[in-house]
Structures are given as C-alpha cells and as structure tokens.
Amino acid sequence: MDCERGQNLLSEFLDGSLPESEQASVNAHLRECLPCRAVKEGLEETLLLLRGLPQGKAPTELLDGVRRRIAREEVPPTPFWKKLFLPAHIKIPLEAAAAILLFLLVYGTWKEELPNLFSPRPAARMDAAPAKEFTKPAEHDASKAPSPPRAQAAEEAVPGDRPVPREKAEPGRTAQNERDSGRSAGSAGTRTAARVPSLPPASSRSQPSLPVIPAQRVSTAGERIEPPSAAAPPSRVARPVPFGREVTIEVAAQNRPGLEERIAAAAVRLGGSVQDEPAKAGIDSEGAVDIVRVHLPADSARPFLAELSKLGILPAEGMSDRAVLTAGPSSEVVGYTVRIRVR
C-alpha cells in the first residue's frame, strides 16, 4: 500500500469502518511509514479534540424566544370589525365624526343640485305647456328657421364705445321658465317680446335692458310669429335707457290679440329688445290698454315707427315730442313706450 492510498483510508481506519483486510493493510503500512504514522497521529488527536468538545449550555433566552415566536404565530389575525372599531373610545368617535362630515358634504352638494334635479327640463316643460305658452326651445327651430347669424349677432358685443354687460341668450329655455326665474330673482331685465303680455305690471324700470334672442313664437291667436330673420341687424342695445319716448298705437278690436308680440317682433327685428317686465297701464272698458317698452338703436327708431304704423294708427296726439328722431346715423339707444289703445 502506498502512502497516498494509506492516508486516504486513515479516516475510515480510525473510525473502524474499513473491512478487516484493508484495516490490516493500513495498519501494516503505518507500522512501516513514519510520515503516514505522523499524519495518523495528528488526525487522531484532531478527532479527539472534536469529540471532546464540551456540549455547552444553551442560553436561557432560547426557550423564551421560542415561546415568544410561537405565541406570535398563534395570535389569530385580528378580525376586520375589531380593526374597524377597536379601541372603541378612539375609533368610534373618529368614525362618527367622519361620517357626519361626509353626510354634510354629500347633503350640501345634493342640496345645491336639488333645484336642478326637481325643475323640469325645457323639453318636458314645452310638452306640458298650455297653448298660450308660445315660446318653444330654440333648438327645435334650428332645422326649420336657421337663425345662428342672428343669434350670434345678438351675442356679439355692443359697439365698441359701449362696453356694457349683457346676458347670454338661452335658447333652450321656455318663456315660462324664464318668467319664473325672472320673478324669483326679482329681475326686470329685458327678455323676449313674447312674454310681454303675460307678465305682471312693472313697478320698477331701473333694470338694464339686455338683448335676448327670442325663440319661435306663436301668438295667442295661434298665428305664428316668425323669429327675427337672419338679415336683422344685431342688437346694439345693452345699457339702461329710460323709456321716455312715448307712442300710442290704435288698433281695431279684432287686431288687438297678439299685438304685443308683433310690436316686440318688430323691435327685435330692428335690433332692439323688449322690456321684460311690461307695465300694464290699466284696462279700459273696451279692452286692454297695454304698454310695451322697447329699446332700439337710434337709427332703427324711424323704421320701428314705420312698422308700428303698419300695425295700427299712430295718432299725433299720442306721440311725445321726442318720439320722432331726427334723421342721420347715430349710435345712441332710445327707449320707446308703446301704448296700445283699442278703438
């Protein structure tokens, strides 16, 4: 047996796990080979050291640590409701406060939206409107009587030298809606001519007149009033102007119905607007004596009077001194009070 082979078998030799023959061969080699015997002795002493290592005592915290870890594992997961409500003295008040805040927030938002939620939509309102409600939503007219240029013109700014606030036209609104809102707001602003006859008497005349594009109208007599044509000039009336120019128009009784609408249509066609809150002067024995107040560009005053003369007679005594303007271009705005008298 050579040294390499003998040394490779040393471990098993010392463990006594070699077969007897090999055990004897290694033993014989060790007796003859001093270096291998030295290696064997060194290995033997190493094993003695290893086997003589003291066992040692585990620290006492080992068992404690094991117990802690096991206890941590055995703790059942906290149920959701406990996480939600415990500790009760802290979480329940906090959650209650959060719930109240959330309720207030939702309620506040809902309350703001409430009027819109309960108010009927224009289309539905039109369906339910009585026959005398002659205004229809403008979108219904869009396909029949295209008026975008007119509408756009009405929304355009007034001439540059008159930067005044104005109100946007709301084509979707019905006359009833607008009247309702006008009442609730206490506003006497300018609206369409169509609603003039049905509004209560005016007590104030201080509100600014703002041009509004009238929707398609039907007179109380069932006569259809065409909206202002696209060719009509844009309204330039946008600031409060007193209705100091008075005109009286006399009409026969059979022509009386719907006269307000025709006057209003003429004013709007000429770029003017109609006072939203008509002032009824009173009712005489033969019929209504009504007043229609309009604003017009000064250069439309004459055409307006011409239109009125087509609708009825304009007696000279019914005209105030300033009713007829002098000719010539003007950027002024004039206010007319048209009194209707039935012959």
């Binding site: 066992q55 005592k57 585990a58 620290p59 870890r69 096991i70």
Partner: peptide, 28 residues
C-alpha cells in the same frame, strides 16, 4: 434538545447571536 441544537448552530456559525436566532428558528 436545545443544548445540542444550540451547540451545533454555534459551531456552524461561529456566532452566538446568530446561533441563538437559528436555534429558535429550528424549534419554531
């Protein structure tokens, strides 16, 4: 078994703290 396990871990790791940690993991 803790003495034996701990001693084994200690000799394997040559670090008492780590040996303690591993011995606890063994029993867990």
């Amino acid at each position: 078994h803790q003495d034996r396990v701990y001693a084994f871990c200690s000799r394997m790791l040559s670090d008492r703290e780590e040996a303690l940690d591993i011995a606890q993991e063994v029993f867990l």
